[in-house]
Design a protein around this nucleic acid. Sequence first.
DNA 1: TTTTTATGGTTCAAATTTGGTCTGAACAAA
DNA 2: TTTGTTCAGACCAAATTTGAACCATAAAAA
Lengths: 227, 227
Amino acid sequence: MNDTLQVTSGSAGVFNKIRDSIVNGRYSYNERLPSERDLATRYKAARGTIRSALEQLEQASMVRRKFGSGTFVTYKNDFDHEDIAEETSPLELIEARLAIEPYIVKLVVLNANNRDLNRLEQALEQANNTDHDPEAFSQADEAFHLMLATCSQNPLLIWIYQRINDIRSHNQWSARKANILTPLKIRAYNEQHRQLLEAIRHRDQIEASDIISSHLKQARQDITGVG
Amino acid sequence: MNDTLQVTSGSAGVFNKIRDSIVNGRYSYNERLPSERDLATRYKAARGTIRSALEQLEQASMVRRKFGSGTFVTYKNDFDHEDIAEETSPLELIEARLAIEPYIVKLVVLNANNRDLNRLEQALEQANNTDHDPEAFSQADEAFHLMLATCSQNPLLIWIYQRINDIRSHNQWSARKANILTPLKIRAYNEQHRQLLEAIRHRDQIEASDIISSHLKQARQDITGVG
DNA sequence: TTTTTATGGTTCAAATTTGGTCTGAACAAA
DNA sequence: TTTGTTCAGACCAAATTTGAACCATAAAAA
């Protein structure tokens, strides 16, 4: 017939079936797929065939495979695409964060207790193990900054930051992550996070606020390609 | 035993199930989850697996765990802004505005064109004729500050400020407006607005940012009754 | 107040699960 | 033939799960 006809056999067939299951929501974001051996019996194929299909899915950035752990869906279905997410450019997003986060950090310095600091430390370490995985770092980075907002103890600011994060994950910038987030960049960002947490630990409002400001300005430069 | 629909297993599966229970309202905001040992029997998993899932939920800022007390839902459904409006105190609202408005003003100084300045002038004059009407001034004041956000030209910041204004008009502070907004206070606020607009006209970023900061700090004082 | 109870926090080792790798045979298409 | 794919099985290495015990805290009960 024509080239739109789907292949239904072999690894290409398995690839198509799993891909459809993902885009149709049968397997949703962050969900773990059945094990390769399990998939093999389901699709009545050899494990090697399944692995070949999973490699293609990974190549297509739809899943991420973790040694000894499983295969996880990284594809996001845009159900709740709010208009505002469409209208906001990566640069405008950074500007908004530049507006709100330095003040959030000041509040964190004032309000954070030891438990909050431990949670920030955890979030930071999550991000520290992602040198070579832009997608993983991006997720951990979102979680770290949201945790900062959470530690401000201000429900309105937390709510606002949740909205920012929603937009962040639907933003056009997502497409360029892989280009911008080199291992070197990721390490630099992680180092800035570390410095920020130290400043918070020392209850140094001005230092902490300055660090988050330059952190975001750095990100702005990296996005615009200036510098 | 896996012929039928297979849900994700392990801690990832428990995480998904509990997360869904939370977003679907099965466990609602501030509610305490069953104990870890209880969840372990419910989900037929070891306590360690449950703890792993709860750690993921905590990292996602959906629950908060209290030593010796329990695990509590911190996730809020963002569908109705009424909730966040009810949970936000007048002080927290001012704090959020203090976070965002100074930066908005800086952007206005950078981006505002003559047409924007005229719009601000109009909004300001609207507020100038309301010396003896707290309700009218309050509305005009909201409009003026929203116009500032609009002049920042950043759609995300505009959207955020619209949400802030929504909350502002639903906030508990409304009840105390009549007490706080004396004619004297209204004139003082209007004067500060005037100075702000002048600073914007002179493209003085620092001056404009300082004025809006002290303007809001003044409002914070008036609310808390300090000073 | 003191005591008790329930809860989350921690540690440990064994068992299990999972993705990663390799081999060789069977099969189909060029 | 040659080439590429699929299949089936085995083993490796990493991560998770399990089950149990014990600790520290907070709230309830006495």
